[in-house]
Design a protein around this nucleic acid. Structure first.
Lengths: 219, 219
DNA sequence: GCTGTCCGGCTGTCTGACAGGTTCACACAA
DNA sequence: TTGTGTGAACCTGTCAGACAGCCGGACAGC
């Protein structure tokens, strides 16, 4: 292991506090001068550490105001870049369908409760923006329940990229009723541990969503 | 667009030169003092810009020696982190099999030639290390030929993560003959445009590789 | 209540300095 | 001739201090 420079060390501490959630998204960090004093280093070192955090998309610095946490993990966009809606909708089923199948086999009771909570919250949610966030959480929770970290990560990245496309929001209002029902089927299959049903339900759901999205994109 | 600070501007220039290939991997950057003079800024600014590059995994700085380019794109590890061999081998088929199917439908003549070149080079290659690199290129080329950038990206990331696992190299010597034959089948299916055959051949190949890997891991 | 001004805090950048790592040439000894 | 070691030159890592410009709030005047 390379001997850590001071700047590297401060960066690691800050990154740890951000990724662990000790520093929440939106939180304002102490001023550079205060951090310098706190860690017993010069302001240059603190600035370089903050520059690293900013490069990773974890923080944002605004002149005269301070540095703020804007994400608690390294942004997928950094690596994934921009994908077309066509590529994303084409790829999604191949990841999320098997993930749903594995989730049906491997989900724990806690994960099941979490999924149930999300589905219930969605059905009684009217604000489209909140609903979209919950929808993201639902798919992410299934990927997590698959027990495969690759699926978990790729699903998160794909959904993040999709969320950045403005068309998504326009679609959800129309699809809400149907989606609620489809989510319920997926959850039920995972609950009873039927891998085949979970895959079929997820496939049907993604297919329906893909059709709806395409009809908007081709308009 | 936020007005660019000087450090941000220098960082953008450096990142551009690295990602465009103008600065090749392995190249040594000018010293901080030289860069400062070149861009008309202070050394602090240059150091912050370099710190950003380093945070993204593009460069590495060694005390007393200088700063070197170590990658021409943002490293996947940055986001993907560490995955277990089990997770990787479980996820691979779900990505690479459909990618092979799409490649059979969409590949261009150039992509086909490229694939043929890689397969030929592999069959007459004895050095395991070189062979592994070519193997990576083969799978990456198929993902590229799928015409779906999500598959292309995810395959690259998965293979990069796999390449970091030392077991991989131990396996290839034994699998070389069989793999050569399997690669040939995949290529043939893509050549004649049979999506089903390409998927089946890729599935058989990954299954065989997965079995071989597991037998090593469980030893 | 509204407005304009001022002040304190913060970031952005610059300068100059010194410690410590790295390399290489050159003089000196075996 | 060969080997050694020693110092100079160059590099990064860090520090302290300084100043300009941005920002938000306090405050006086209208």
């Amino acid at each position: 292991m390379a001997r850590l420079g001071a700047a590297e060390a401060v960066f690691n501490v800050l990154r740890g506090e951000i990724e662990s959630g000790k520093l929440e998204v939106g939180a304002k960090l102490s001023s550079e001068a205060a951090l310098a004093q706190e860690y017993g280093v010069s302001r240059s070192v603190v600035r370089e550490a903050l520059r690293s955090c900013t490069a990773l998309g974890l923080t944002m610095t605004r002149t005269g105001k301070g540095t703020f946490v804007i994400a608690n993990r390294v942004a997928a966009d950094l690596v994934l870049g921009q994908y077309s809606a066509r590529d994303l909708t084409e790829a999604r089923p191949h990841i999320e369908v098997p993930a749903a199948g594995l989730a049906a086999q491997r989900r724990t009771e806690e994960e099941l409760e979490s999924l149930r909570g999300i589905v219930d919250a969605m059905s009684s949610e009217d604000d489209p923006e909140v609903w979209v966030t919950l929808d993201s959480s639902f798919h992410a929770a299934i990927a997590r329940a698959s027990g495969n970290r690759v699926f978990e990560r790729v699903v998160a990245d794909i959904r993040e990229a999709l969320a950045n496309q403005s068309e998504t929001l326009n679609m959800v209002a129309d699809r809400k009723i149907a989606s609620d029902r489809e989510h319920e089927s997926i959850l039920h299959a995972i609950e009873v541990g039927s891998s085949e049903d979970a895959q079929a339900a997820m496939e049907a759901h993604l297919h329906a969503v893909g059709v709806a999205l395409n009809s908007i994109l081709n308009k």
